[in-house]
Design a protein around this nucleic acid. Structure first.
Length: 465
RNA sequence: GGUGGGUUGGCCGAGUGGUUAGGCAGCGGCCUGCAAAGCCGUCCACACGGGUUCGACUCCCGUACCCACCUCCA
């Protein structure tokens, strides 16, 4: 079996067959960096990270492009509000986004282009749309895409023009459905937010950016285009129309991830109901647990975020993590490397990235592994532990991944280790003479200091909370 | 109003026309000096009403409720 993916364009799960045998081009609409990222954005990052990792493990050489939109109306508004250059705000948020991705172990894309670096490519595309009669320029210096000139408009989101509510953005356009390709510079807007063009100074419309950047780095035709369901219309519909209108084949498959809701409503910048990774960290949730949480639901499902659910996910994640650590302590870390993923896991991933089922397969194996360790069956335990680690690693959740280490802890560990060892030796002596009151007192004191001690057949093990 | 998605056991969350999802929490047991971890067992289910079928949570129709998009938004 091989990968099957849900394709929004056909509204069905399709066998994934890239244009070239062993290469895959993927374009993901990244963020408009008008504010710091929240976990809804990061959910999208994790979802596509899982896809990319699975494509790579399936043998494809993946060219993964995820853009940053660093110029738009709201960024200019933020700049005016804060009395700072708009580009400083965009870049600040872009860095925070990168930190968020990194915290959740989301791998960097092959390339991360910025919209402002591709104005000439956008102008080229707009010109070819004008030449082909799919766009028109106004005296004010705006350029609009003519929706009525493109009969296939609506093919992605399956909307009919007559079904659409009126009240689209105002402007000097001929048809209310037409969307902006180029926005003329307006009085009062910063001069450094305008570029010269055949139609006068201005800046690009949102949609044209992605068409131009996808074309530059992935070519006129590529395999997968992704983003959140909230931008399927109009953004992706518009991208598709203008790229096809310019004579490009564009994307073969369209993938959309579901929204992350808070109290039943979409988490969004405009609603202000956002939650950041660092805020969750302050509440005691680890980045690995957050990633596990986002991985344990299907990427197309809406997720109603709750701290209770995240707490349950953290417990579940610790169960897997505990098994891997336990196995490494018993068998040696080397023994847990290079295992095989089980068939249930592979089949689940091939089935439109059914990560909840994949995670369930890991839990099943972890149970068997724990039983093998209990029984002293090191051969079986080694095989299972290696498989569990391989699968967790595939999901970006290997407990031993250095990514999860907190560098600030590293210095302390050495010092604490020496101190804890002294205490544990005293406790061992107390236990040897069956003075359990004294032994428990030492353990309680360590617990109060944040050091959790547990006894295993191979002696005590401690962790810092 | 249009389009799409959803409603699963105390909670999270997959899936299937007839056979245990998985996890968290609870309960009982084993193990342990105790605890933790782990293992075994166990309780709890498919919004509502019709229909198709030998049999439906799983297909069809209807009803209710929820969400998203139709305007910037992953």
């Amino acid at each position: 079996m091989s990968l099957r993916l849900y394709d929004t364009g056909t509204r069905s799960v399709r066998d994934f067959q890239p244009r070239k045998t062993d290469e895959v081009g993927v374009y993901l609409c990244g963020l408009t960096v008008q504010g710091p990222p929240h976990i809804g954005h990061l959910r999208s990052g994790v979802s596509y990270d899982l896809l990319i990792r699975w494509l790579r493990r399936s043998g494809y050489n993946v060219n993964y492009v995820r853009n940053v939109t660093d110029i738009d109306d709201k960024i200019l508004v933020r700049g005016a509000e804060q009395g700072r250059p708009w580009w400083a705000i965009a870049y600040e948020n872009e860095r925070k986004l990168a930190e968020g991705y990194d915290a959740l172990n989301v791998e960097a894309p092959t390339y991360e282009p910025r919209a402002t670096g591709h104005i000439t490519q956008m102008i080229d595309l707009i010109q070819s749309l004008l030449e082909r009669g799919h766009a028109y320029a106004t005296e004010a210096g705006d350029v609009w895409f003519s929706v009525s000139s493109w009969p296939d408009y609506g093919e992605l989101s399956h909307r009919r023009p007559e079904d659409m509510l009126s009240g689209a953005e105002p402007g000097n356009k001929r048809d209310s459905r037409d969307f902006g390709l180029w926005k003329a510079h307006k009085p009062g807007e910063p001069l450094d937010a305008a570029w010269t063009s055949p139609w006068g100074p201005g800046r690009p419309g949102w949609h044209i950016e992605c068409s131009a950047m996808a074309r530059r780095y992935l070519g006129d035709a590529f395999d997968i285009h992704g983003g959140g369901t909230d931008i399927m219309f109009p953004h992706h519909e518009n991208e598709l129309a203008q790229s096809r209108g310019a004579g490009l084949d564009f994307a073969k498959y369209w993938v959309h991830n579901g929204m992350l809701n808070l109290a039943g409503t979409k988490m969004s910048k405009s609603l202000g109901n956002t939650l950041s990774v660092s805020a969750l960290g302050e509440k005691g949730f680890s980045p690995a647990a957050i990633r596990y949480y986002l991985t344990s639901v299907h990427y197309r499902s809406a997720v109603d975020f709750s701290e209770d659910a995240l707490g349950e996910a953290q417990s579940a994640w610790e169960r897997l993590s505990n098994f891997v650590r336990r196995a490494a302590e018993a068998l040696g870390l080397e023994s847990t490397i290079g295992g095989m993923m089980c068939a249930d896991f592979v089949n689940a991933m091939d089935d439109d990235l059914n990560t909840p089922a994949a995670v369930a397969a890991i839990h099943d194996m972890a149970r068997e592994g724990n039983a093998a360790l209990d029984a002293g069956d090191d051969t079986a335990a080694t095989n299972i532990a290696g498989g569990v680690r391989a699968m967790l690693d595939q999901l970006g959740l290997d407990p031993f991944d250095a990514h999860w280490d907190d560098p600030s802890d590293a210095k302390l560990t050495g010092a604490v280790d020496a101190l804890v060892q002294i205490a544990l030796e005293q406790r061992a002596e107390a236990r040897a003479r069956k003075d359990y009151a004294a032994a428990d007192r030492i353990r309680d004191e360590l617990t109060q200091a944040g050091v959790t001690v547990k006894d295993t057949p191979r002696g005590p093990v401690w962790t810092v909370d």
